[in-house]
Amino acid sequence: MIELRDVTKLYPASSRPALDKVTATVDDGEFVFLIGPSGSGKSTLLRLLLREDRPTGGTISVGGMALAGLPRRKVPKLRQRIGCVFQDFRLLANRSVAGNVAFALEVLGKRPAEIRRDVPELLALVGLEGKAERMPHELSGGEQQRVAIARASVNRPPLLLADEPTGNLDPETSRGIMALLERINRGGTTVVMATHDDTIVDAMRRRVIELHDGTVARDEARAVYGAGR
């Protein structure tokens, strides 16, 4: 699903690379935690996978698409294969739960009939059946993140990237979100999740890629967060 070879990212303003010759492979259907101290390059890596930014060196391929030679008009195609959620949810405050999910379908040019069919399905997937007409500010953080996950699933993407999706949530709510992500993963979706949450990592026992100053310090299957914590 993902292939990184010697991926280096040097931001113009800094002397130290944010990523330094990172090489890793993620297979279809895997669940991977991306951990490491603040500033180690986790978000940078996810941004490169989304083609929000380009690497300074090395090659990336996602779902069989080589990003280096990808023309700009094909970038939407790439992003349709990747779902994405963030710590800050990024919901549209002036639209209801259903409206937020419908918006993503609308901008993809889906027909109204399709939208009417898909929105309830997606909300059922994340367990928000009864809350379709609520506004985002009427939801808890966990529920907002569920809306974001529903929205990220509109294309039924084979890859889901999550950048600290539980960063703003309490442990109990976080567990709920992790259960949801696990369920999505069981459905065949590859999940890559950047996180600082050792409890979650330790509880899930999945593959862990640990970054340190932009390099891979550890890449271990069924691992824990680390002795350092």
Partner: peptide, 17 residues
């Protein structure tokens, strides 16, 4: 920017955005 961000992330075409 939030709308635009959502459009970009779900893969709406540049034209749509």
């Amino acid at each position: 920017r939030t709308e635009v961000g959502v459009m970009r992330l779900v893969g709406a075409t540049r034209w749509t955005t």
